[in-house]
């Protein structure tokens, strides 16, 4: 292109190139299926182990150790996930109402709170871990069906 205004053909080509670059960046950020599944599993193990550690005095130490280990694994997996492909994803909520962004976290907390009524903190943490894992796995299913 020159310094003059581009022709319609040049403009369309430039637009296409820009949209292709934006799409390529989004594709490069797609986290591998196995990594997301591992994130969900680590989250479930972390919450469940820490929750059960409070309910079983004899197994408290190994369960706490397992929970902390899973916590570290979860953080490492999350870090690898967001840094996958050399790009840090941009948070985008375009086209989605603010309340829709909050639905999943709010539902997760609500499930944890409801389970806490009959089963206490142990039940709440186990439920929280399972719901979080389900959310991670739901994301994989949604990405694959898209």
């Amino acid at each position: 292109m020159t310094d003059h205004d581009p022709s319609a053909t040049d403009a369309a080509a430039a637009l296409h190139a820009a949209r292709t670059a934006q799409a390529a960046a989004r594709v490069a950020q797609t986290v591998p299926r196995g990594l997301v599944l591992a994130q969900g599993a680590a989250c479930a193990v972390e919450c469940a182990a820490l929750g059960l550690a409070g309910a079983h005095e004899e197994g408290a130490a190994p369960l706490t150790a397992l929970g902390l280990l899973a916590c570290v694994a979860f953080l490492v997996l999350m870090w690898r996930g967001v840094r996958h492909g050399g790009s840090l994803p941009r948070l985008r909520y375009e086209g989605r109402a603010a309340w829709r962004v909050l639905v999943v976290p709010a539902a997760t907390i609500a499930v944890g709170a409801l389970v806490a009524i009959p089963y206490g903190l142990t039940g709440a943490l186990v439920a929280l871990g399972l719901v979080c894992a389900l959310d991670f796995w739901r994301r994989v299913a949604r990405t694959e069906s898209a």
Binding site: M1, A17, A21, R26, Q29, G86
Partner: peptide
């Protein structure tokens, strides 16, 4: 205006930050 600049900036617009090598390769 330059196609390389436009592609580079457009790529970055979909990321919070990107490695230099990724931009070079793209």
């Amino acid at each position: 205006h330059h196609p390389t600049r436009l592609a580079l900036v457009a790529y970055l617009s979909s990321c919070t930050e990107t490695e230099f090598g990724v931009l070079r390769d793209y």
